[in-house]
């Protein structure tokens, strides 16, 4: 029973983190048809920026309460700056190219981002535990949980909810949904697709950076976290169906619970349980649970 509760809470916690780290990736793929490996770079940038800024802020003796503001601010700065440079500087010249080619392009960008991060923050690890520590812990059926971890679940729900609201209730959002659903129809309706690409890419990049920024207080930020997170995010969005936002929710829950289950029942399986679930889902549903439609060929 205790294990079941632990799996449930941890599963939700993992799922929240996975959702935040991967929803930007699926949004960008859905709208732009770019499978963005550089997303891992955005995550790392967000984590470094936030850990660094929180460290500076707390060291100078400021109250911890305001450090929670630093997280979203740094995420927006990191996501916007890196996103703008990449989208305006490179990607926009390559729109409409083959999807596989775009994977290679974003892989190159990922490599560049990795070193940019190292050049800015060096190779030392950064810790910024204060915001997580200050919230203390809470007991759920006798198991202590950090409130910060639970708060991330809340943030994920808010982010996912507002993204969905934005897509279904604003004019731009509705048009983006049309573009995700059917590119040809979008063209026929006279939507200037490329106009939305910049916006989408910035939102996606910022979400990636936010995933990293929110995680920073819980971990030690070191080189290589981008490469780790991108494969998890791939697993999530591939399971859900690339480009589908509800799919990202389901994918995050499946992966999150798979991981929590193995952590509590058989810890050595933690890492590979994720990919095992992914391969299993794909063996049954080749293009994920919520696959986008493809056009007629002949």
């Amino acid at each position: 029973m205790l294990t079941a509760v632990a799996i449930a809470v941890d599963g939700l916690g993992f799922a929240a983190w996975l959702f935040l780290s991967s929803v930007g990736l699926t949004l960008i793929y859905g709208v732009m048809r770019i499978l963005n490996i550089a997303h891992g770079g955005f995550y790392a940038l967000g984590a470094y920026a936030s850990a660094w800024a929180i460290g500076l802020y707390v060291q100078t003796g400021n109250p911890v309460a305001l450090s929670y503001l630093i997280i979203p601010v740094m995420a927006v700065i990191a996501g916007t700056v890196a996103g703008l440079l990449i989208e305006r500087g490179v990607l926009r010249f390559m729109y409409g190219r083959d999807e596989v080619l775009m994977v290679l392009v974003t892989y190159a960008l990922f490599l560049i981002l990795e070193d940019v991060t190292k050049l800015i923050w060096g190779t030392d690890s950064y810790v910024a535990w204060q915001p997580a520590y200050a919230l203390g812990t809470v007991d759920i059926m006798g198991i202590p949980y950090t409130v910060y971890k639970l708060a991330i679940i809340g943030v994920a729900v808010i982010c996912g909810g507002s993204l969905w609201w934005g897509l279904t209730h604003t004019r731009v959002g509705k048009l983006l949904l049309v573009v995700i659903e059917d590119r040809e129809v979008a063209g026929a309706l006279g939507i200037n697709v490329t106009k939305f690409f910049t916006v989408t890419f910035l939102i996606g990049a910022t979400l990636g950076a936010l995933g990293g920024a929110l995680t920073a207080p819980e971990i030690s930020v070191v080189p290589g976290i981008g490469a780790e997170v991108i494969v998890m995010a791939f697993a999530v969005i591939v399971i859900g169906g690339m480009g589908s936002i509800p799919g990202a929710v389901i994918g995050a829950l499946i992966v999150g619970f798979a991981r929590a289950t193995s952590v509590h029942l058989y810890p050595p399986a933690e890492l590979f349980s994720i990919y095992l679930v992914m391969a299993a889902v794909l063996a049954v549903k080749p293009y994920g649970l919520f696959a986008l439609s493809e056009g007629r060929k002949i």
């Binding site: 190159a108 960008l109 990922f110 490599l111 560049i112 070193d115 940019v116 050049l119």
Partner: peptide, 10 residues
């Protein structure tokens, strides 16, 4: 190093 790799690849 990786930056050079990435740039060359691009």
């Amino acid at each position: 190093w990786q930056m050079i790799l990435g740039t060359v690849m691009l």
